[in-house]
């Protein structure tokens, strides 16, 4: 295991498999009455979030606590960041206090990588701009592997705003590295040019993308970006790219429906599908804690932070 988890693009299939394998026993711990093992006693995990987040931050925090690490969370709005302190200086300060792991969410692509080169602590990228969100993709991979027993040979449709989605990018790298085929679909203005270079195929319409798919990942339509005029309206978006029961029937029977959250009900996904039997949305959240425990455990190998 390397010092940091920055993205899935650089990771090999065995490295990814190791994290997924480690998450299996971690999930057993999250189901116990006493959700606590002493493994990371005396280690400090600091969550530094320059963007709002509920599930990712809480998930990392619980994962660290279940492993007995001490955790501190810092959000940009309530820290020295508002006084103009740079990311590097904030990180150096935190590390000077003895942080072993820094979990970073930042609006700029490459922020985590820059930080990893600056500080001795292990850095986990919890989302950097529209670049990568590796822990989300790893929990997607874990959920699919747990439900279907494999990743190799599956067809995964990723639908929505690919352009702004770091989840989409990490999912593309993760699923293709593990041997699955990825199809992309969304408004033409939200498909980045040249995305085919990642190995994913771009589909012209939903029907083509869903046809026989084993997994359907719906991305959140970022309503705050709507004023940019990338799509005409929420209602039209729902009509062209929303997932309802009728469309879902085009996928393989029993196909898994996933969504990284938070969900815009009735926009990218209909309530009936979001709450249906094929929906993995809650399962994804549960698995997120186990996968993040695995990441924290594997990155906390001894004797390297001295």
């Amino acid at each position: 295991m390397k010092k940091d988890l920055l993205g899935l693009q650089q990771m090999t299939a065995p490295e990814i498999a190791r994290i997924l394998d480690t998450a299996v026993p971690m999930k057993e711990i999250t189901g116990r009455q006493i959700k606590k093992v002493p493994t990371l006693r005396g280690r400090t995990v600091v969550n530094v979030f320059y963007e709002p987040s509920t599930r990712t931050r809480t998930s990392f925090e619980l994962a660290a606590k279940y492993l007995s690490a001490d955790t501190v969370s810092i959000s940009a709005s309530a820290s020295s960041v508002v006084k103009g302190e740079s990311l590097k200086d904030t990180a150096r300060t935190i590390c000077a206090m003895g942080a072993d792991v820094v979990v970073l969410r930042h609006p700029m692509a490459g922020a985590a990588e820059m930080l990893a080169r600056t500080v001795p602590a292990a850095v986990i990228n919890a989302g950097d701009g529209a670049h990568e969100h590796p822990s989300q993709a790893l929990l997607d991979l874990f959920t699919v592997r747990e439900k279907t027993g494999r990743l190799d040979g599956l067809t995964v449709a990723v639908i929505g705003d690919i352009l702004h989605s770091r989840v989409a990018r990490s999912d593309i790298w993760g699923f293709t590295t593990m041997g699955a085929t990825v199809r992309l679909c969304g408004p033409a203005t939200m498909i980045p040019p040249g995305i085919e270079a990642t190995g994913a195929a771009v589909c012209r319409n939903m029907e083509q993308a869903l046809d026989g798919a084993d997994v359907v990942i719906m991305l959140r339509i970022q309503l705050e970006r709507q004023q940019q005029g990338l799509f005409p309206g929420v209602r039209e978006y729902a009509r062209l790219f929303g997932l309802d029961e009728k469309r879902l029937a085009l996928a393989r029977p029993g196909a898994l429906v996933m969504h990284p959250g938070p969900v815009n009900r009735g926009v990218e996904i209909s309530p009936a599908v979001a709450d249906g039997v094929q929906s993995m949305i809650n399962e994804q959240v549960t698995n997120g804690v186990a996968v993040r425990m695995a990441i924290l455990y594997l990155l906390s190998g001894g004797g390297k932070n001295e």
């Binding site: 295991m1 480690t22 971690m26 493994t39 695995a294």
Partner: peptide, 11 residues
């Protein structure tokens, strides 16, 4: 002995 091992053992 986890803090003394270079590589985390498989769980």
């Amino acid at each position: 002995d986890l803090t003394t091992l270079a590589q985390q053992p498989l769980v």
